[in-house]
Design a protein around this nucleic acid. Structure first.
Lengths: 144, 144
DNA sequence: GCCTGTTGCAACCTTTACTGTTACGACTGC
DNA sequence: GCAGTCGTAACAGTAAAGGTTGCAACAGGC
């Protein structure tokens, strides 16, 4: 499907910041998170910027700058993160408008649209059931 | 998410062939389907080729060649189509392996993996509930 | 045996999105 | 003023989807 890793990386970043704060630190830097996620700090800053616009994190500038959670991990669900970083739908319609003169071409889009909406709704429901605190808990429960 | 239209186009093609056969025709050509879907015949042939490998359609060559259903629309679900044309998962992991020395880097992939597997399972369940006969019925029910 | 229409398939191009990278201004505490 | 970090633009690299062309393979009709 040409899936992307945006939700994964965003969850990674939030879990990292949350754990770091539990360890008594004030703010986390994009550099630190990027090292953990094995990517570039700019990638992290871009994603966290979207999470900031969604009200999930805050950033501080200047010396001692960095990122902190805007809410408790317990109150953040994967759906919040998903909506912040994934704009589009899971399934796409035709690129070019199908032939409206054809019965199938005329009716296929409304038919598929309503099916897709139902699926997206269940996906959202599943994502809403998982908090970032759950994610961090699972992360820490992984045997090494 | 950079969603694609493969499932949509494949469902379109199957509905088209199914309706055409109900009207008494033996086989449908990629040219006809492409006109209805407003795309290129080769795109249709590529998709139908994958559906043929999955045992959903059959093709005939030579004069009077074309495509026909291998099974009744009633016995085909969107899950069959999805599995035939969508190889990958909905959500991707990190491109590069996260830092195994970091607690989060070490545990994040198993944690997200099990969440993602649950979501994919519910998506499959939803797709399995819809037959292509349902789709065609919805298509024909669309007011013009 | 040739002609015709269609599939099968390879090759290539364009577009789009994601990801990675570099660069540099803006900000703020010291 | 200095240092460290964010904010953001700009661009390159990569990958997948979709579109297009071309042509061999096939099979039925003449």
């Amino acid at each position: 499907m040409s899936a992307n890793s945006r939700l994964t990386i965003a969850a990674h970043a939030l879990a990292w910041i949350g754990l770091y704060q539990r360890q008594g630190h004030e703010v986390a830097t994009s550099e630190q998170i990027a090292t953990s996620a094995n990517t570039n700090p700019v990638v992290i800053r871009r994603l966290l910027g979207e999470l900031r616009r969604a009200g999930l994190v805050e950033s501080r500038r200047g010396v001692g700058a960095g990122w902190s959670l805007a809410r408790e991990l317990e109150s953040m669900t994967l759906l919040d993160v998903y909506e912040a970083v994934e704009p589009g739908p899971l399934f796409a319609m035709h690129r070019a408008t199908p032939d409206p003169e054809c019965v199938v071409g005329h009716g296929i889009q409304p038919a598929m649209q309503s099916i897709y909406e139902g699926i997206e709704e269940t996906v959202r429901h599943e994502l809403a059931r998982v908090t970032l605190a759950n994610v961090l808990q699972d992360v820490l429960a992984t045997p090494r």
